[in-house]
Structure formats: C-alpha cells, structure tokens
Amino acid sequence: MESLMIILVGILVAIATYLILSRSVFRVIMGTAILSHAVHLLLLTVGGLKKGDVPIIGQADEAFTDALPQALILTAIVISFAVTAFLLVLAYRMYLTNGTDDFSQLGGKSDE
C-alpha cells in the first residue's frame, strides 16, 4: 500500500506541477491546491500505514499509528486553506488591476 500511495503522490505532484507552469492564474491556484493534497498524503504515508489503531489512548490495546505526521498535516490543511483563499483574492486583485489573468501578459518591465 505504501508504494502505491507514493506513486499516487508522484502522479498528483506531476499534475500539480503542470498546472503551476501554466499561464492562467486560476490553473496555478488549482495546482497549489492539488500539491497540498499530495503533500498531505505523502506525510501520512512516510509515517507508516496501518501500523496500529487510531492515536487515541484507551481506544485500543494494540499499537497506535504514528501521531506526529497527523499533527503536522492538521496544521497544514488549515494553512493551505488560508493560502488558497489568499491566492484567490490576490488573483482577483491582479485581474482587477491589470485586466488579465494571463501571467505571460504581465511579464516585462514596461512600468518600471
């Protein structure tokens, strides 16, 4: 399962990278969203899968799964939400100011 998950992560990262490399700001934001999904899964997987039960004391007698990646991911989820929101608004402002959502039309130094 672990190997399969990591391959899945690899595929997600590749797709996210492709989206990030595109010109449209909306696709770039989508790319970052997918990238954060991939990273969350990666973190969870490298901690080991199905090694034990839910990390709550008293629920089971056997070993727990690794709780540390879970704590990391929990913060990462909330942060990535905030970042996505910020990026969306940034894109909105960019569109409002420049009248385009295409990065390739923003380049250059004409305004300097």
Partner: peptide, 12 residues
Amino acid sequence: HNAPGGGFIGGL
C-alpha cells in the same frame, strides 16, 4: 483533548 476534535476542527 481525549477524543477526535480540538481547536482547529471545532473552529472550522
């Protein structure tokens, strides 16, 4: 503190 939940989830 003792079951699934907490500040983040509760807040969300």
